[in-house]
Every structure is written in structure tokens, then in C-alpha cells.
Write a protein that binds this DNA or RNA. Structure first.
Length: 154
DNA sequence: GCCAACGTTGGC
DNA sequence: GCCAACGTTGGC
């Protein structure tokens, strides 16, 4: 079982939104970055645990936990001409983009702000892409040690 | 709203 | 294959 961090803009899709979905589950569609896609398609498996991160908001930070349900699958929004995520180069026969379905687990007892996580950038969170300068990855791996450390801050 | 960082595109 | 231009991300 692996650990991950996934970013979402709460104005678009928040952890509360995830908790309110039928089955508390949502397809993580619209990822159009190859690094992020490769992680979903090639490395994510059902049961993997995910830190849910709010970006582009007043207090960016980790707000809760979700988990991967089901196997990775082609992203259907890529096939849909009406979708803002449409990519004509992705076809059902040869899908270019993939997603995983993500299910709500829980909110953290408090938001752990990016600013606080950054204070550990040269310590326990050394190497975590989130706390590196200029990082833009929307999906990233978290080591078991980093996961446990972040939970200890809760 | 600004802007640094970074990925992608496309001309050559 | 290089690299300038451009678009996007996302913190602040």
C-alpha cells in the first residue's frame, strides 16, 4: 500500500464536496500532466491512502484523507467534445489520459498549512515535492515516514 | 493581481 | 534536437 498527496482547488472541488458525493467517491478526472498521469496509471492501487490538499485558497494545506478505490482507468472526459478536458488525441482505443476513483476517508482534526509543512522542509519532510520551491506537481508520492510525520502534526 | 517556476508547443 | 514563446500553476 502506498501513500500519495493530491491537490485540488476547493473552489472547484473540496474535501467537503468529496464527502457529499454519492458513495463519497469521485473520479479524479482532468489530469493532463504526464508525470501525474503516470503515477495514477502505473503506481496507484486500490487501498492506497491519499492526503487531500487544498491549493489556490486562503490557507493552502492538507485538509484530510481519501483512498484509492478500484483500478486506474481511462479518463472519459478526454473523449467528450463537450468537456473542457477534451483531448482529441485520446481515444477509447488508445487512451492517453487515465484516472483513479477516490473515496473520502476523513477530515484531519485541523488543517495542516503549507507554511507549517515548509518549516520541516529540511527535516522530516526533506524531499517531499510539495515543500520544494516552485513545485507544481498536482499528484505526488509520500513516503510512509513522511505520512506518519504529517499525521503526528495533526 | 503579481510573478516565479515549470511544462508544452512549434519553428527552425 | 534546440530553444524561444507561450500558457498554466499556485503561493503570496
Amino acid at each position: 500500500m502506498r501513500y500519495w498527496l493530491m491537490k485540488s482547488e476547493p473552489a472547484t472541488f473540496s474535501l467537503d464536496d468529496l464527502a457529499a458525493r454519492p458513495g463519497q467517491t469521485e473520479p479524479w478526472d482532468g489530469v493532463r500532466n504526464y508525470q501525474a498521469r503516470n503515477m495514477m496509471r502505473d503506481e496507484m492501487r486500490p487501498g492506497d491512502q491519499v492526503f487531500f490538499y487544498h491549493s489556490n485558497c486562503a490557507v493552502p494545506g492538507i485538509v484530510g484523507i481519501a483512498e484509492v478505490v478500484g483500478e486506474p482507468r481511462p479518463d472519459p472526459t478526454a473523449f467528450d467534445p463537450e468537456s473542457s478536458y477534451h483531448d482529441p488525441k485520446s481515444t477509447p482505443e488508445k487512451p492517453r489520459w487515465h484516472l483513479v476513483d477516490v473515496r473520502y476517508v476523513r477530515h484531519l482534526r485541523r488543517v495542516i498549512p503549507l507554511a507549517e509543512l515548509k518549516t520541516h522542509a529540511t527535516g522530516a519532510l526533506d524531499g517531499l515535492p510539495l515543500v520544494r520551491r516552485g513545485n507544481r506537481l498536482s499528484i505526488m508520492p509520500v513516503t510512509p515516514e513522511q505520512w506518519a510525520f504529517i499525521l503526528s502534526l495533526e
